[in-house]
Design a protein around this nucleic acid. Structure first.
Lengths: 208, 208
DNA sequence: TCGATCTCTAAGCGCTTGCTCACCCTCGTT
DNA sequence: AACGAGGGTGAGCAAGCGCTTAGAGATCGA
């Protein structure tokens, strides 16, 4: 390891920013449990057990079970928004940027589909203030995609009669990947990403 | 009422086939509660309360809480499959039939989004045998859509490099409507259906 | 009029839940 | 050697869970 304070696994390790290590183990265990059985069906004993700790250990690092979900949701949404913004801010035609956004967004939802499932489908389990915070992040994701489509229409690259509606459809299509994607399935995350990028370009009227 | 044995509301009333009336009231209450809070977060006391009955009354009509979910899921999936098959079996070009399938399927997911949310997103809460039964119905839905796309490709109407992948994407797009659709929102079920039918025709390469 | 049948309730059982508390063990520092 | 701080545990509390049971009331054919 090059830097003294670097986290094991490097900066790109998922959950690398969560410290100390016991807190990260609990969080990873919670992601798995929430993804498998849903937030409400998961017990704090199950989470602690998966992390190899006693039920009481959870409450040293997190005030409540809901705070655990919030931390997961927050980190996941930050990452999702980062991915979309990176694609939107690139150089290139609108078609290139939209394809890039869909490809990387879908790849994330497929590769990290356990995390994504929790992030995208357990929103209602959050408390009111936490939910409001996350909803705001979602609006920004919507904005990033809409911006690309708007610019494509303006540049004459896209033919889109209903930009807000198409934006919702594109995001919805990508997000739902985390529901049906299965590691045992036939397709790799890269393949699904490529397929979806092609489908979305067709949706906005790009001719090949 | 014209026929002696007719159910109030007529044949097209949702849940009209569920009798007696108390059982239907409980089922409708369960749909609302499951859609709002999720299956696991919903208590049998809450369901009975919404139906204006005591907690014990639920067990006169249903053996367990899971049986209630299964009944809802079964009826909903039957209806969804019926909609897709009706469109697939119509006369007309593949494009017309695909547009019809998407339009009516999306309209159902928007109009009855509380029901659809339970039907589409609470699959994992079912027991193993019940889940297997429902998964089989889903495969048939996939088959109905795939058939239309296959025929469109064969007839030269569609240009689709990856038929199975596109089928999954089309169904996924429609199903996810039940997650984000809101009655207070700007669009009517008809409008979303029309938008989505257009987007899907673009996905399969139909030129306008 | 009488019991049979069906629907529904009040009360509550056995269990699990999220979470707490008193205490212990392992440290780095003095 | 003594200490304080903080991560960890075993036991368990109050509350809420799905579900059961004994019995009340309403309805109806014989």
């Amino acid at each position: 390891m090059s830097a003294a304070e670097e986290t094991p696994g490097g900066e790109d390790m998922p959950w690398g920013e969560v410290t100390p290590e016991a807190a990260r183990r609990l969080l990873v265990a919670a992601v798995e449990a929430f993804a498998e059985r849903g937030y409400h069906a998961t017990t704090t004993r199950d989470i602690a057990g998966r992390a190899g700790m006693s039920p009481a250990a959870l409450y040293i690092h997190y005030k409540t079970k809901e705070e655990l979900l919030h931390r997961i949701s927050r980190i996941g949404h930050d990452r999702a928004l980062e991915i979309l913004r990176a694609a939107a801010d690139r150089d290139g035609t609108a078609a290139e940027r939209l394809a890039d956004a869909v490809r990387s967004f879908v790849r994330w939802h497929a590769e990290r589909h356990t995390t994504a499932r929790v992030v995208q489908y357990e929103l209602d389990a959050l408390g009111p203030e936490h939910r409001a915070e996350i909803v705001e992040l979602r609006k920004q994701s919507d904005g990033a995609v809409r911006r690309i489509i708007d610019e494509g229409v303006e540049a004459g690259e896209f033919v889109v009669p209903d930009v807000p509606g198409t934006t919702v459809a594109v995001l919805s299509l990508c997000i739902d990947v985390s529901r049906w994607f299965n590691t045992q399935g036939r397709r790799s995350p890269d393949e699904v990403g490529a397929l979806y990028a092609d489908l979305v370009l067709r949706m906005v009227g790009v001719q090949k």
